[in-house]
Design a protein around this nucleic acid. Structure first.
Lengths: 196, 196, 196, 196
DNA sequence: CTTTAATCGAGACGGTACGTCGGGTCTTTCT
DNA sequence: AGAAAGACCCGACGTACCGTCTCGATTAAAG
């Protein structure tokens, strides 16, 4: 009999979902410092006490929201053309920076990582996960004979450029600028600007 | 004549200095969201009313602190070797990221720029100023025959890599890693790793 | 039906009581001008916001404290001997002037009544209530054949003497001086001091 | 030679006068608690620092103002008719209560006397001085054969009634009510109400 | 007159209190 | 039992004064 199988009150499930959603929205809109349980409760249409009973406090809510952000979109970059993979990955990142929950939450996450060790650990782990795929593609590219230099440095340069545009300039990197970026960092400039 | 020289009460000068210092420390330690006038006043050893009398409110204080951060270190990169200039600029940035007020305040500044339009404008302006020197060096490098690709993209990649390491990884870029970064982004990898 | 009986949170009741008590103490000790919400909150061991949530501001708190002072002690002076009633009332007032919250608050109340129209109205109303009982007793005394003169004037003289001693001299009227006062004001001096 | 005779800067004299005047007005209008150096300075058209240089602080200014109030109007009540003297003294007091600086300052003085021992001593001394003349007149009246009872009590009742009307009722004792008051307290009621 | 010194106005500064807002915790009541 | 409501404490906000103090500028007195 499957009767004693840890039944959860459907109200709890509903509350949990709405709270997580609201937490993400709050993080995006108010930032780490401005993030408040009260704000989340209001957004979720839920009483503050409900959130506390779910076992959350401020930090755990932020952490939960950050984990929600870390959904890897598709782990299948393994095409036959490593360079196209690199462009695809950078393009994907650039697209995310232009408009997405992740982009909206980015400054908040950076700030949170700066203030709290737990969030920092989380943030660095997820960043490494994301970067790894790019490093792998660059390594494959190098192994296919392309001049890449240090793949780690190249990955940091490519991803860094995308984040730089998001964080330090008014306009994030457009998807159509990705090709030029990759060409520049991979030292293919002569081909791009002097095709003759 | 310069006789009417608008003397300022020395007490005001002293207060202004201490408040600005304290504001920077507060910004670094508490972030944009946690930044409080009370905290600044306590840190500065000054009454809250003094801060308000100086014409500050929360935002203007943050802005003033940010302006303090924007002291250009040395405007004389005009050496004879453009590539050395590039390395010098990136190294300087990398060093700053390893330990400095600017590094400490960076997440707070990014967060502030995200929340407030005024701070955003300031932040982007200063970023542009800093980036411009790098772009110029890269352009000179290109004009001297070096393969650079798009100097704008290259600058974003170089600076971006440094910021990326500061913000997304546990360890900022070390100064001795700069040479490798520059070589990678400038497509000199074959020369560096394959001196053949 | 008494079913919908508007229950009040016991915490609110407790807060209200402590705040009122503290307000009285503050009024007695600091006076109307020195009366501060901060002081009341500290005295009551309550947060300032709690006081504001109870609907109070500075003036309404003072007013509430004054109303607390206006508890009529016992409305049963209707003895068979009007003169004894007069002595009782005056004695009661004299006793209150020697030591009581009302005595301690008196200067503050007078000052408050002078500065604020609302407090003035309150103060005069309560004074009238208290005086009325004395006037009635004097009137009964007059109707019983005693020479009283104008009962209004006599009441003002009797009460006035008690207040005068409290406010203008170092020593309030002692209870054993009341008999002499009443005798003097009621023109019984010859009987009291020259009993034939 | 009268040269070394402690000449005072005329500016100081002028300041001193204006400050004292202003202090009285401030006391009357704002009360003891609301009395502020700043208010006095503004009223006097003088800088705050000027007041402090004159050696004043808050209390000494209030005290100085109170002393100014204590000018005995005329020490010559010694007529041939003691009862007329009594009426004159009480009338004078009643008139003062209706409109005068002293009346305006009364609540402030009472409050000040309650808060500060120095002011209290001053206040009681001046009150005694004023009351003494009334007691003397009543004693003369008693010696002339009139039934007075205890002259001390009678004086307190008469003066008390006047103060009572000023402090506890909306309308001070009118001058034409003085005769009735004196008649009542002196037990002459039968003459007043039953002249037959 | 001119020098010198006291006096003044102006206002910076550290405080304290204001009334408001909002956050996190905890209790009470309802469903 | 779970959820909603909301009372409570805490602390920051920006404002308004207050009493103290330090400044230059003004003005009286002495040479």
């Amino acid at each position: 009999m499957a009767s004693r199988q840890e039944r959860t009150d459907p109200r709890v499930v509903r509350s949990r979902e709405r709270v997580l959603e609201a937490a993400l929205a709050e993080l995006a809109e108010r930032g780490y410092g401005g993030f408040s349980i009260d704000g989340v409760a209001t957004r979720a249409g839920v009483a503050r006490s409900t959130i506390y009973r779910l076992g959350h406090d401020r930090l755990s809510l932020v952490a939960a929201a950050m984990e929600t952000l870390n959904v890897q979109p598709r782990p299948e970059p393994g095409g036959h053309d490593p360079r196209a993979d690199v462009v695809a990955i950078v393009s994907h990142l650039a697209a995310a920076m232009q408009s997405s929950l992740m982009s909206d939450c980015l400054p908040a996450v950076l700030d949170g990582a700066e203030r709290d060790p737990g969030l920092r650990e989380l943030h660095h782990r997820y960043s490494t996960q994301r970067r790894t795929r790019l490093v792998e593609a660059l390594t494959r590219l190098q192994e296919s004979g392309h001049v890449v230099g240090d793949p780690e440095r190249a990955a940091e340069a490519l991803a860094g450029a995308v984040f730089y545009r998001r964080l330090m300039t008014p306009v994030p990197l457009r998807t159509d600028e990705v090709e030029g970026l990759v060409a520049t960092v991979l030292g293919e400039a002569q081909r791009a600007s002097q095709p003759e």
